[in-house]
Design a protein around this nucleic acid. Sequence first.
DNA 1: TCTGGGGTCCTAGGACCC
DNA 2: TCTGGGGTCCTAGGACCC
Length: 391
Amino acid sequence: MTAPPPRIAHLDMDAFFASVELQQYPELIGQPVVVGGDASFAPELQPDGSRRFARLKSYGGRGVVTTSTYAARALGVFSGMGLMKAATLAPEAFLLPGRHDLYRDYSRRFKAAVRAITPRIEDRGIDEIYIDLNPHAEEVLLLAQRLKAAVFAATGLTCSVGIAANKLLAKIASDLDKPDGITLLSAEDLERRVWPLAPRKVNGIGPKAAARLERMGITTIGQLAATPVHDLIAQFGARYGLWLSRAAQGQDERPVTPFREPKSFSRETTFAQDLHVRQDRTTLSRHFNELCARVAADLQRKGYCCRTVGVKLRFADFHAVTRALTLPSSHAAIADADTIRRVAGECLKRISFTQRIRLLGVRCGGLEKAGTTVFKTLRQRDLFAWSESMD
DNA sequence: TCTGGGGTCCTAGGACCC
DNA sequence: TCTGGGGTCCTAGGACCC
C-alpha cells in the first residue's frame, strides 16, 4: 500500500482578528496589541485627527484575550488568557474591543477568494478552512501560492497553508511555518517533522489528555506513536486510545466536508458581577428573556425549529450545570421566543441555587428544518398545558 | 490574575419498549 | 415472582476546538 499524496490543505489566517484591526489602525503595526473587552475600550478620535488607544493596564473586568499580535505573544500574552492577567504581563500593550461583524465580513471575503479557485472547502470557524486539492491537477505548491495571493488580494491579510495527505497532518503543517508560510508535509516527513512535536499539537489532544500523557512519560508525538496501543486503550478507553495511536502515526480518514447541518444554537452571557437568584431577580429575568429572544431569532434567521431546549448556569466557583427538556414527539418543533422561554423556565426550576450566578445560557438542540412541520396554535396550547403540568 | 462565547462529540446511566 | 437482552431516546457532564 502506497501512502496517499499530499492533496489536503489547511489554510489558517495569521492572528486573524488582530491583523484585521491592524489594517484599520496601521499606526499600531509592530506593537503589542490585544483584541478583547467591550466597546468601551474603542479608540477615541482626538481633535488633531489622531487616535488614542486604550492600554491593557486600564482594563477592569472579566474578559479574555481573543487574539494577540505576534509582538504581544512575545510578551507571553495568548488567546484565552484573562485580560487582567495579560495586563500584568504587558500593561502597556494596546487593547482593542472585538468587532465580530467586521471579522465575519473579512472571513466571507477570504473564503470566497479561496472558493473561486478550489471550491471544495470545509469551514472550520471564522479564520480557518480545509481544502480538498484532489480535483485539481495543478502542482500543490503552486496552487497554495495562488490561494495565498488570492486571499491577500481579497483582504490584504496573510495566511499560512499546510498541505498533507489528510486533515490531521495538514493542520499540523499549517502551524509549522507561521505567519505567511507554506508547508508541504509528505509521508516521509512524519518522523522528522511531526514526531518531535508535543502531543498538544495534534488537533484533539487538549490540556487534560496532554497532562495524562505526560504522567505516562509521553511528551512527544513520536513517543505516543511508539506506545503500544493497548496501553493507550487501558488509559483512555477503546475509542480515544485507538484514535490517539492512529493520530500519532499520522493516520486520519476524515473527508473534507463542505456542508453540515447545525446541531444546536445557543446564547450565553457572563455577568459583570455574580448575581443572586432572588436579590437580582429583575436583572436575571431581563437577561434570561433576552437570551431566549436572541436564540429564537437565530433559529428563525437560519430557518430551524428545535425540539430540545436547555439552560446552562455557571456559579461563582466557576462550576457549571446544565438542564434540558425535550418536547414529546407529539408536539411540533418550536422556534418562538415565548415557548423557548417557557421550556427553559422549566429547566431552571430544576436547579438548586446555592451560590451566586456568574453565567446564564440558553441552548436549542434537536433541530429540524423550519417548514418541515407546520406551526399550529393548537399545538402550542398543548405544549403550554404540558409544560404547566410539569411541576 | 481567576478563567468569553459559540460550537461538536463522547460517555454513562436510566427509561422504556419489544 | 427476580430474571434476560437489545435498541433507542433522553439527560448531564466533560473534553476539546476556534
